[in-house]
Design a protein around this nucleic acid. Structure first.
Ligand SMILES: [Mn+2]
Ligand SMILES: [Mn+2]
Ligand SMILES: [Mn+2]
Ligand SMILES: [Mn+2]
Lengths: 217, 217
DNA sequence: AACTTTTTTTAGTCTACCCTAAAAATATTT
DNA sequence: AAATATTTTTAGGGTAGACTAAAAAAAGTT
């Protein structure tokens, strides 16, 4: 395994390669490499039986590939917790450094770090940390977009795009924070959220897809 | 800069390349790569003016090369402090993981980590941590081999070879621990050290070269 | 001084990534 | 159905880093 292969497998996973076919074009976009390089890497991973490949259609992770993806995500997210909680990174700052560290971490290191951090279940933006054996803890949460006016909820997870996290930082949206939906404008208009202290926040329609919540009674 | 180049420069530094010429053979031994690969890497570093090269004699670090070496050593040693103090690694366990992490650390990360660790001056075996600007704090310590019977001293630094550290762990020699030399056997015989609690430890002649101490009045 | 051994360099290969340009296959329009 | 556009693959190259085998240079021995 090399850092490039690991990141490539992770990209397939992020694009849904656990259950659906991921096209070369999506990988080109996601990894910012040429189409030819994607074909090449596909062939390498195919030889190692980490993916299956339907020519001109795309790739999918095998069991073996999925395990590698989940173990890498585990490393990534444990590092993110460290950077945020111990080194005081904001949640939009953790990604780049975790993306490097994940490839430079022995299993021994990750298990020690995990214990040092108190065996966290979630990363700083609510992503669940896969178990050591590659299995994923079951989590139940609802996209904000599916909620109704009047619903009360708690923020559970947010999309980890750097610019989106920055936007949420500015909007003061944090994991665990509770809101009530006081209004949803029609025609894909914004959500108006009211926090416990009465503070009101406008959240755009598209952003409501990227926020997962837990409905409270 | 790549991980391989960084480690190569660090190896030159460890072999004395700051002031003396380091031969290819020494680098072959130290990095476990072929002589041809050493010649190749020399040429690459030469082109970047990180080393000077006398054909068939060896290489030496330039100012530029020395700065890179010291900054890498800073990263390495700060990680070692983290692994030892926060993750509970024994001092003979820190090296391999720090050797990977040092190449996957942004300057931002290292400065945050440094602050988190309380801006340490020394790594777990007493190696001084270079400053951010690549300068080295001045340290005054004496090799144990130069001490006399009757001398009282404190352990300041030990060689960081993994097997030597394991030996010291077994001998219960730790940084900061105080001893008196109760005997030095002639003909390169062992040193007998007596700790404050009366406990006696035999230290081989060769080991006495690898232990640096601070003499106490 | 001549021979032998050691060390360094050169020459030729290999793998992992990356690229561009062209060809082939598939999808979309007209 | 044909033409056009998009996507994927192939062909051909490039760099970093590693190797072995052979040639060249330096050092050590007799
Ligand atoms: Mn990564
Ligand atoms: Mn993340
Ligand atoms: Mn290293
Ligand atoms: Mn060290």
């Amino acid at each position: 395994m090399t850092p490039n292969k690991e990141d490539f497998i992770k990209a397939i996973h992020e694009l849904g390669g656990q259950d659906t076919v991921v096209t070369n074009k999506e990988l080109v976009r996601s990894l910012s490499i040429s189409a030819a390089s994607v074909t090449e890497m596909n062939n390498r991973l195919l030889k190692e039986e980490l993916i299956t490949h339907l020519p001109y259609q795309g790739v999918q992770l095998t069991e073996k590939g999925l395990l590698i993806a989940n173990q890498l995500i585990r490393k990534h997210r444990i590092w993110e917790v460290f950077l945020a909680e111990k080194l005081g990174y904001d949640w939009n700052e953790v990604h780049a450094d975790a993306d490097l560290l994940e490839h430079a971490s022995s299993d021994f290191l990750i298990e020690r770090l995990n214990i040092f951090l108190g065996e966290p279940t979630f990363d700083p933006h609510g992503g669940v940390i896969p178990n050591k054996d590659g299995t994923i803890p079951e989590i139940h949460s609802t996209p904000l977009i599916e909620c109704q006016t009047g619903d009360r909820f708690k923020i559970k997870e947010v999309d980890d795009q750097e610019d989106f996290l920055e936007y949420l930082l500015y909007k003061k949206v944090k994991l665990g924070k509770e809101y009530t939906i006081s209004d949803i404008e029609p025609y894909d208009g914004p959500f108006t959220l009211e926090a416990l202290n009465g503070e009101r926040t406008l959240i755009g329609h598209k952003a409501a897809f990227k926020i997962l919540v837990e409905l409270l009674n």
